[in-house]
Design a binder for these strands. Structure first.
Lengths: 186, 186
DNA sequence: CGCGGTAGTTATTGATTACTAACTTAGTGG
DNA sequence: CCACTAAGTTAGTAATCAATAACTACCGCG
């Protein structure tokens, strides 16, 4: 397997592992084991653990961005917001993306790595701007749309089942995401 | 100082440290240093690191719960939801509570400690039920209210300044929370 | 004085961790 | 067949961490 292909599979593994146990809670060995490769070899493919995490973060944002772009295709106005919500519900059936996203927020908040913090901030705001521009939405509309998204993140993180009373008032698509998560091979 | 007082100050330090760097990223030594006590002494006051984290989590929920109770006092219906939002904005000016809250979500999501996961889930749902009962709110109203709360958590975690465009459409009180955080001595 | 309990300490240990150095294996082109 | 390169290994290191063991200093009480 070429180094580039290997790097790709390492990133996928990193998304899963970092998503589950966070930056500090994830050992490079756990990632290597998931890839099926020796731990020291990771350091041939990436300069260090931080770089690994950043690559995983990048992948996470790319996936969300692609989903949002796809949602807005051919639509405009409020329809974009609705479509974004539905696409997001589908996206987070892949539990790994959601978990890593939450990890990114706490990493950004910690401020341990200012460069990484800035990166996460910038990419998140880019998502916001993307939806806002495509939908031509007001601040209140954006808050409503993204507020629901963040609430869903929380409900799923907490592991509340789809028929739990806290899910009342949410899109049915989102409940599906809670009820039938797609567990990826990684 | 009595052991009980010491335990209290340890909990306060744990809230700060765990909030900033998470469960795995926080060493017991960091907590001890903040308290101004030797690291092994923590294990006289608490059986282990997990117990320390749980105590911090408990404190976090107690603070939020108390704030929500206070908000609902003497009000009913939608007024409760408004008051809850305002009180929450004030609450999270204490950055430590917010950061630890985010950490609790990822810890719950990781499922590493099923007992702790169940605890966090239960306490979070209790908050939900508290507000819902006091406000007599519908599912959609609850989603709106808590959705905004979770969005605020995210915006603050990301460190977006109060005048950032992503804050458009939020309560002014929340912007104050972003602009003038109360940094507690811990 | 002396005795016990309470609040604390220093020293240490075994496990884990990110990361390095040096070696091996396998294909490929001449 | 041989040199070169690219992919991957094993072995090891210095540092860190949670937790334990064993000691000390002080306080009130008889």
């Amino acid at each position: 397997m070429s180094a580039q292909e290997r790097r790709e599979s390492v990133i996928r593994a990193a998304v899963v592992e970092f998503g589950r146990t966070g930056y500090h809670g994830t050992s490079t060995e756990a990632i290597a084991r998931r890839v099926g490769v020796s731990q020291p070899y990771l350091f041939r493919l990436f300069p260090g653990k931080q770089a690994l995490f950043r690559a995983a973060a990048e992948r996470c944002f790319e996936r969300i961005e692609a989903a949002f772009e796809r949602a807005a295709e051919g639509l405009e106005g409020e329809a974009v917001l609705d479509a974004t919500g539905k696409v997001y519900a589908e996206l987070i059936r892949d539990r790994d993306v959601l978990l890593l996203q939450m990890q990114l927020y706490v990493v950004a908040a910690s401020g341990e790595d200012p460069e990484l913090t800035a990166f996460i901030q910038q990419r998140w705001v880019a998502l916001w701007d993307l939806v806002r521009a495509r939908a031509g939405a007001t601040g209140a509309q954006m808050a409503h749309c993204f507020g629901h998204g963040m609430l869903i993140n929380t409900l799923v993180s907490l592991g509340l089942p789809a028929d739990h009373r806290c899910w009342d008032g949410q899109l049915d698509e989102c409940k599906v995401a809670a009820a039938e998560p797609v567990v990826r091979a990684g």
